[in-house]
Design a binder for these strands. Sequence first.
RNA 1: GGGAUCGUCGUCUAGCUUGGUAUGAUACUAGUCUGGGGGACUAGUGGUCGCAGGUUCAAAUCCUGCCGGUCCCA
Length: 480
Amino acid sequence: MGKESIGITVSKKSDFSEWYTQVVLKAKLADYAPVKGLIVLRPDGYSIWESLKYTFDKKFGQNGIRNGFLPVLIPESLLGKEKKHFAGFNPEVFWVTHSGENEVGDRLALRPTSETLAYTLYSKWIKSWRDLPLKINFWNTALRAEIKATKPFLRTSEFLWQEGHTVHATQEEAEKEVFKILAIYKNTVEEELAIPVIIGKKSEKEKFVGAVYTTTMESVMPDGKALQMGTSHFLGQNFSKPFDVKFADKDNIEHFAWQTSWGVSWRLIGAMIMVHGDDKGLVLPPKVAPTQIVIVPIYNSEEDKKQTLQKAEDIKKQLELKMMRVHIDDRSEISPGYKFNDWEMKGVPLRIEIGPKDIQKQKVVLAKRYNKEKIDLSFDKIEKIGQILNEIQSKMLETARKQADLNTFDIFDFSEFKEKIGKGGFFNANWCGKQDCEDKIKDETGADIRVIPLGNKNKVGKCIYCNEPSTIVPIFARGY
RNA sequence: GGGAUCGUCGUCUAGCUUGGUAUGAUACUAGUCUGGGGGACUAGUGGUCGCAGGUUCAAAUCCUGCCGGUCCCA
């Protein structure tokens, strides 16, 4: 196997789909499981997830949300209680029909989502207005059988996610919660993963089955397709009624509660790979990188080796004191060049090269992954590395934002829309609000309404399809 | 939902048309030399050819079914 097949063998531009799969496998984030549509997370992949979980937990906690845990099996009778909800999920539910040799009475679903189970419990737990609000988040996996072609992190039959479920005494408070969560999602994804997103509402057609409305966070990927990166739903009383989630209010009258549910999944990792990766492999934003800095010591004689490794250790300790995640690649059997390529494929944000020549000049060579820049840094400036990592983080967001802007277009003419949609992108287009037009646009272009951005009001125009007057400007795109 | 294509040591692969106990590389192990962008030489380990049937004296190769991967189009 030559150097061609150790690294990524296709370019991101010419064969995006193949490129993506290779990066996931070769950067050792994940591998395929023996069952169709399931993947295994390897330590570097799981570490990114843990980092996101840590940040979300902190922010959820500040908002009065605590974590709980729900079982994976849901009886059919429960899952079917809210009819539209059930109809929406039924085609992709995995069913457990046997325990050992015996058939189970009520079939058991492997949870596709936990609303029905959580709310059965909530109805027991909530009696009084004093029990509200109830805000619990669950970190778990959900199972939805994917018949179509699967893709690691983006479309798998089981995925890691968090699902939050809150209950409130008033509609106003519940709706406020929906948007608070959406804001947490947006700022976390932008600050941690350096991916710019657009938040807003889904159309009636695209909303979560069972919700009153769905808010969403969407981003345009480098191949021009849209990726839904998280949703926060206002459930109204649609579930509290069938599940009997009610409480005695201060007026001593029983009321049905108002509810929300919301989630993000490991799709966020998929988005990060697509947005930042390049032809050499993965590029990790420093904040979520399992290893932020790799030190490659270079030496030949035994004496040089000792001296170089010693200095590398010193630098490592110095950086670790500042809470940076550092690794020294002291593998002796492979050459420095191999290591450079290896760590670049794995996306480590910064590389420090140090050898006898550097020690003589009291400096190291610092290589930045995201723009391939190499600079000299003297020993007494080592502590500046923290600052450099922060700069990289913000530059990456900036670059991603420019990329997204280049993939976003205002469009006023339907035939022009049909022509341009082939190349992908986000299209801002006026829409009359009728589902009929939405359906026909989808039929003729393959694009659907990804998001109706917040604060988009009174932009007077004509519906791109039927030419009726319109004040709504959703983003149309083909999605993942 | 429709179409195409693939599955052989850890990885990539030759062999399949025309059946006869599997080729090479890389990785791995050991040693020597090397070391600032995917090193060199020598020796060694590793595969019941995705799974299950069938045809045959004989199946990686032919037939049937299944499982899994990848890509393209709705």
